[in-house]
């Protein structure tokens, strides 16, 4: 379970997050949606223990988030953070050495699914394959919480497709709590259990994706637009 209580974040002149209070239950995939600069990435970094909130408290499974929360949280950054001289398998070994919850079996299954050769050098991988490798490294952890910052961003449709399929195939949605920031709302909508809309660092709303469609007869993207107009 993820619990944020009146969380705010100020950077020198700019306030990135205002007074966010939000509880996410264990299990399921939540989409964190909103325009550029709305504070999505900052929120994810706070949950990952990479950024300290200026105000408020954050708990993940009743533990206060700080750098050590990485033991419970798999975080996929928007950036590439690979050593280019590593091979794919070296990167897998490194990740396995860092996290006791890393499943080599799941990693192998995912490498096969993603058609990644363990012996390829990372520096010769295409951008799409680097994107795939990042997903493998994050999802091969049987972590209670998985945070993904824009996993589809800048990737071609084939790669995006394989990433969405791997989320469906390899995440244990009953146990693992997944939070994904994305601009590709239409593409990701069918895999979200619920969505959280934020704008200019403020929480606008949270809703069950099936209820948005069933009770309001809307797509998630239309719901988001409506939240922005309120």
């Amino acid at each position: 379970m993820i619990e944020l209580n009146q969380v705010g974040k100020r950077y020198l002149a700019k306030t990135a997050l205002h007074d966010i209070t939000l509880t996410l239950p264990q299990g399921g995939i939540t989409g964190l949606i909103g325009e550029n600069g709305s504070g999505k990435s900052t929120l994810l970094k706070i949950l990952a223990g990479l950024v300290k909130p200026s105000t408020g408290t954050v708990f993940i499974n009743e533990k206060k988030t700080e750098r050590q929360i990485a033991a419970d949280v798999a975080y996929l950054s928007e950036l590439d953070t690979f050593y280019s001289f590593y091979k794919v398998k070296d990167m897998v070994d490194f990740q396995a050495s860092q996290f006791p919850d890393f499943s080599r079996k799941r990693a192998d299954d995912m490498l096969t699914f993603m058609k990644l050769d363990p012996n390829s050098k990372i520096k010769v991988l295409s951008k799409g394959n680097r994107g795939r490798l990042k997903i493998v490294l994050a999802l091969a952890r049987e972590a209670p919480v998985i945070l993904m910052d824009e996993p589809l961003s800048g990737l071609d449709p084939m790669v995006r497709d394989s990433i969405v399929t791997s989320l469906i195939s390899f995440v244990d949605v009953e146990k693992q709590t997944v939070l994904i920031t994305t601009h590709e709302v239409n593409e990701m909508e069918p895999i979200f259990d619920r969505v959280v809309a934020i704008r200019e660092g403020r929480l606008l709303g949270i809703a069950d994706a099936e209820k948005i469609r069933g009770e309001q007869g809307m797509r998630v993207v239309d719901w988001l637009k409506e939240q922005y107009q309120l």
Partner: peptide, 14 residues
């Protein structure tokens, strides 16, 4: 459930 989820490209909870 998982195979159906992959076939329809939706969340297994759905």
């Amino acid at each position: 459930v998982r195979d159906t989820a992959v076939a329809f490209r939706v969340n297994p909870n759905t």
